[in-house]
Amino acid sequence: MDYLEFKISCSEEFREILMAELSDIGFDSFLETDQGIDAYILSDDFDGRRFEDLVNQYKDLADLIIEEGKLEKKNWNEEWEKNYDPISVDDLVYVRASFHKPLEGYQHEILINPKMSFGTGHHATTYLMLKHQGELAKEHEGKRVLDVGSGTGILAIMAHQLGAAKIEAFDIDEWSVENGNENFELNGLPVTMGHGTIRDIKLTGPFDIILANINKNILLDEMEIYVSLLSSKGYLLLSGFYDSDIKDLSKKATELGLKLIKTGLKDSWAAIIFQKP
């Protein structure tokens, strides 16, 4: 399946807003450019009407100029390598690709070679999730962890390095599953990533920690399922949304009986730790 590519020229102050809005309608990867952003979506996930409505909403406000194209999957590696930088979280973990040199001074290192690019937002949410995992390092030891929408598998690998006894991971995109399994092997994680949504995958709870770095709409839609799979005193770590979305997600979580433990912010992106009583 091919990706659609949209090269969007826009006012600088609207870059983050547009990435958030586009992620809500299915776009899953972004690259920041000198002119604005490049946004990518699987062709089967593209809703032309919703995209047109979004463009009309911001066209004049953000001075939008858009070029549309098609990007075959075989070209993602080149784009990613040109734009990807390693992720470092304090002294906790250094996430790098094979073409980056290793660095000393970190408790953990994760090696990944994804076939998709990471946009700035993805960097920020990955950073926040890894940081929150580090803050719950002891709670990972010997526990069951579920990584929802695992993508490149970074969070599942982090759980493994923090001592989780059993890890399950899955993603809706076949390409991500293939890539995630390659990264699991690179990092010595004896897990096979499943393919499908949380409603497709046959999961047997409870899980002590559930990780979900997706987007606001999916998190709201699936949160009840997460709670049903979460153990008593278990932790739910969420990211993939903006700080302005914290209120809505917290409201939903509270209605489902979860307690807010902590929030984190980076570059206007947000992450939340909830706990089940």
Rank of each mutant, 00 (worst) to 15 (best):
K7P: 03
K7R: 15
I8G: 10
S9N: 07
I17N: 13
G26Q: 01
D34E: 14
G36A: 12
G36M: 10
I37A: 13
Y40L: 13
S43W: 05
D44I: 02
N56Y: 01
Q57W: 02
Y58E: 01
I65C: 00
L71T: 13
K73W: 09
K74H: 11
D90W: 13
V93D: 00
R96D: 09
F99N: 05
L103H: 03
G105K: 09
Y106R: 10
L111H: 07
S117C: 14
L128G: 01
H140Y: 10
K143H: 05
R144C: 07
R144H: 08
L146D: 00
D147E: 00
V148L: 04
M158C: 11
A165L: 14
A169C: 00
I172R: 04
E174F: 09
W175P: 04
N181G: 08
E182W: 11
G188M: 02
L189Q: 09
V191S: 11
G196S: 04
T204Y: 08
F207V: 02
L211W: 10
A212T: 06
S228L: 04
S228H: 11
S228M: 04
S231A: 15
G234Y: 11
L236D: 01
S244V: 07
S244E: 09
S250A: 07
A253G: 07
L256P: 03
G257L: 01
D267C: 06
A271M: 05
A271S: 15
